[in-house]
């Protein structure tokens, strides 16, 4: 029983972090129909920056997200205004090509500057755990989870309770309708892309502590993140949260009761099973107008 509880709690902790990482991807797809396959490379880039800061200044890797988040917001904004804006209105497949090129560029730059070796930030609490009865909660995962939930909560509040968020959602749901009420399409899209990129600021900093990484690790991460948002429903933020928790649980439960080797495979089997019955994903909604269409 303790073993099961431990596996479930660990699964939820890691799922929360996955949710944060996937939130940027689903937000950008929801608003702009852009599949940003560079989101994985953003994470690794931030992880590398965090590792460097930790190594050379001693700053706590998770706290470093205070620096990396605004950095990625700015980078996201500049990337949208200079590169992504050129494919506005094109099909999502065009965005895959463009952002894959971006991911390869980031990977190449990281290979040249940081080298092609595994890295991992190991702060003092790296091997410590909180004890709750007989359950051990690794401190790094708890801190990462708390940071992820705080950022996800903030993102949810911004999207649902502020005019900026309403403008972003309006543009996502009906771009021409948004223009008719005075929402600026380009500035809103730039803001959404920057917000999406900024989630990799916190996500990458957490990743640097929880997982060893090297420049090409982004392939592994983007496939997980895409799996999460497909399961949850492309463009749905609550869907990303649930999809991520399912991935976290699938990984820890399979690792505990089966083998670590099968952990990720089980998640993809779950995706396949869900999509057979709900092609729109768990939280992808079908409205009256979808049925009419």
């Amino acid at each position: 029983m303790t073993e099961l509880l431990q596996a479930v709690i660990l699964g939820l902790l890691i799922g929360g972090v996955y949710a944060l990482m996937a939130s940027g991807l689903t937000l950008v797809f929801g608003v702009m129909n852009i599949i940003n396959v560079a989101q994985g490379a953003f994470l690794i880039f931030v992880a590398m920056v965090t590792w460097w800061l930790w190594k050379h200044t001693g700053i706590d890797p998770i706290l470093a997200s205070v620096i990396t988040t605004p950095m990625m917001f700015g980078l996201g904004w500049v990337l949208y205004r200079t590169v992504i804006v050129r494919i506005r209105g094109s099909s999502p497949s065009m965005s895959v090509l463009l952002t894959f090129g971006l991911a390869l560029t980031i990977e190449g730059v990281l290979n040249l500057t940081a080298g092609n070796k595994f890295k991992s930030a190991t702060p003092s609490y790296f091997e410590e755990s909180f004890r709750v009865g007989s359950i051990a909660l690794p401190k790094a995962q708890v801190y990462g989870f708390v940071a992820a939930i705080l950022v996800l909560g903030a993102l949810y509040v911004v999207l649902t309770r502020t005019w900026t968020g309403r403008a972003i959602r309006a543009s996502a749901q009906n771009p021409s309708g948004a223009a008719l009420v005075g929402v600026g399409a380009t500035s809103t899209a730039a803001l959404a892309f920057a917000l999406g990129a900024s989630t990799s600021g916190v996500g990458g900093s957490i990743l640097s502590v929880l997982y060893p990484f090297f420049p090409a690790s982004h392939y592994d991460w983007i496939s997980r993140l895409l799996g999460i948002i497909v399961l949850g429903g492309m463009g749905s933020l609550p869907g990303a949260l649930v999809g991520a928790l399912v991935l976290g649980l699938a990984e820890t439960l399979t690792a505990t009761y089966g083998s670590l080797r099968w952990a990720t495979l089980v998640f993809y089997v779950v995706i396949l099973a869900v999509l057979l019955f709900r092609p729109q994903g768990l939280f992808g909604t079908r409205l009256r107008e979808d049925a009419v269409a």
Partner: peptide
Amino acid sequence: QVPQSQALFPHM
């Protein structure tokens, strides 16, 4: 302006 095609935000 109220356009010809649907102008509402369907998920709002």
